Structures are given as C-alpha cells and as structure tokens.
Simulated scan of single mutants.
Amino acid sequence: MPEGPEVKITSDFLNNHFQNEVITEISPITKYFKTKYSSVTEELKKKLIGEKINSFTIGKKTYIPLANKQYYQYHLGMTGYWSKILTKHSHYKLSSKSKELYFCDIRKFGKHLISLDSNLNWDIALYDFLKKDYDIDLHYHYLIKSISKRRNICNVLLDQKLFPGIGNYLKSEILYKSEIHPDAKWGQITKDLIYRILKNSKYLSRRSYQNGGAELKDFRNPLKKSSFNLEVYAKKTDPNGYRVSSIISKDNRRTWFVPDIQKQKR
C-alpha cells in the first residue's frame, strides 16, 4: 500500500500534470465506478468542472478543494494510481481541453468521497512529517497524552491519528533506525526514544519522498525513477551485514528487524 511519501508524490503528479489547466470533463469508465461512486461523480461535475486542480495530502489521504468548503477526498488503497494511459484497470477519467488522466485501481480498495471542511483531519495534519511546518515538540506532547503505556509500538506507528502517513515499510525502517524491538510497549519507550522515533520518522518520510518513494509491488513513481533504498524491509541482511528477521507483529502485519541491534526488553 502506498504510504505518505508515495501518496504525496502521486498528488504532486496530479498537480503537475494539470498545472494551469481547467478541468472540462469527469467521466466514470467502469460499471463498478459508475455504480459505487455515482453521487461523488455528480458532485464533481457540479463543483470541479471549470476549476483548477490544487491537490494536497494529509497522511495517506488526498484532497482536492471544491466550492462551498467541500473537498474531493480519495485514498489510493492498495493499488490506486493516476496514469496518462487508459488500461483495463482504469475506472475514472479526469480531463482538461488538452490533457487527461485515468484513475486506475487493480484491486479496487481505493475510496472516493466528498468531504466537508469540518470533517477533515486538520489537527492530524499538524503531525504529518512531510508538512513544512511540522513541529516535533508539539507532536511529542500530543503522543504522551494520547497513548496507553500498554500499547504495542507497531500499533502506535500504524495509527494514522498518531503517525499520519506511516505504513508498514516505514514502520520497519523507523524501528530499525531507532533500535527498538517490534514487540516493545509504549510504556517501555523513554522520552529520548520517543524523540528518536519522531526524528527518524521525519527523516525517513522526507528521504523517501525526496528520492522518489519506495517502489514496491504496488507503486511506481510517475515522475521519475526512485533512488530510495530500504535497509531492512523485505531484506535478508542490513547494510552492515547483520541478519534481518521478520515476525507477524501485534499489528498483524509483517515487521522486519535486526535482533542483534533491536534488543527485546524483559
């Protein structure tokens, strides 16, 4: 599933493709999309045609402002992406007079809706590591008052209200960089370690974004070839030659870690 960096890259692609262009057509292609998102399509025809695209992201969600403080909100799901090419997995067409893009989704896990301004997670945006005004101290104080000491660290990192944009590959990389075992509980994480987690989350999220994202099974950068390298996720050894193990962690996802570095506390 695309994570925060990949979602923002996809949003940038949408903005760049339609830069200074006015939307002239919104067309569902498949019966699935025509049926499931008929009301969304009608609203977009009323409120996006004749307007310019100004897409932005909060965590893993993308928003396009509409009239009357409304937004076209979509989630890429597992396999969603925008393409210049019509494929058998294209469900939606977005056009200007000279350009077009197709929303493609192989597994159909993406979600599309019209949101009100009051329903947007503006507070959560404060903790998005890709935002220019991200404040690590503000994030720290939010976390210490929001998380139970008994909660598993993997569950914490994947909670989009706490760590917006963080997904499974970033989770593994952050824990490795922070030298924390995936079975650790929040109550075992000291203040210094929390700040280490936040610094590494910001660093890895931004490095991934700046270097083109993690081109895993379900994501290909539409703007350039990625140069971002993972150190432990789906690896057999880390860059120093230490053995990488994996477990199904408390979040019911597979987590990669280095036992020689990420010691489990008793």
Rank of each mutant, 00 (worst) to 15 (best):
P164Q: 06
K177G: 00
D105G: 02
I166W: 03
R253A: 10
L158A: 07
K97I: 00
D117I: 07
Y37P: 00
K84E: 05
G4W: 08
D192T: 12
D159H: 11
K236Y: 02
F163Q: 05
V40G: 03
S11H: 01
Y209D: 05
L158Y: 09
K236W: 01
S226L: 11
K217T: 13
I248C: 08
K236I: 07
P259N: 07
D137I: 15
L175P: 07
I114K: 02
P182Q: 13
Y102M: 01
V244D: 11
N168W: 10
D135C: 10
T190Q: 04
I189L: 10
L198N: 09
Y71D: 06
I114Q: 01
L198V: 11
R220P: 00
K202D: 12
S201I: 12
L94E: 01
T62C: 12
T30W: 09
K45Q: 14
T190K: 05
K191C: 10
L44G: 01
T237Y: 12
A67S: 15
Y142S: 10
H17L: 09
I9D: 06
N252A: 13
K199W: 11
L130R: 02
L157C: 06
Q70R: 12
N20S: 15
R150Y: 10
S201K: 11
H112R: 00
G59E: 10
I26A: 04
Y233H: 12
S83R: 01
P28A: 12
S27M: 04
N54G: 07
D192N: 07
G241V: 09
E25V: 06
R243A: 14
Y32M: 03
N54C: 12
K88G: 00
Y81R: 05
Q70K: 15
L66V: 04
E215N: 08
E173S: 14
G59W: 12
K185V: 15
G80T: 06
V244P: 02
Y63N: 07
K199E: 14
I9T: 02
L204S: 07
Q188D: 14
V232R: 00
G213Y: 10
T255R: 05
N155P: 00
G59N: 08
L158C: 02
L120Q: 00
I23T: 11
S38Q: 08
R220V: 09
T62N: 11
D251Q: 11
T62L: 11
S90I: 04
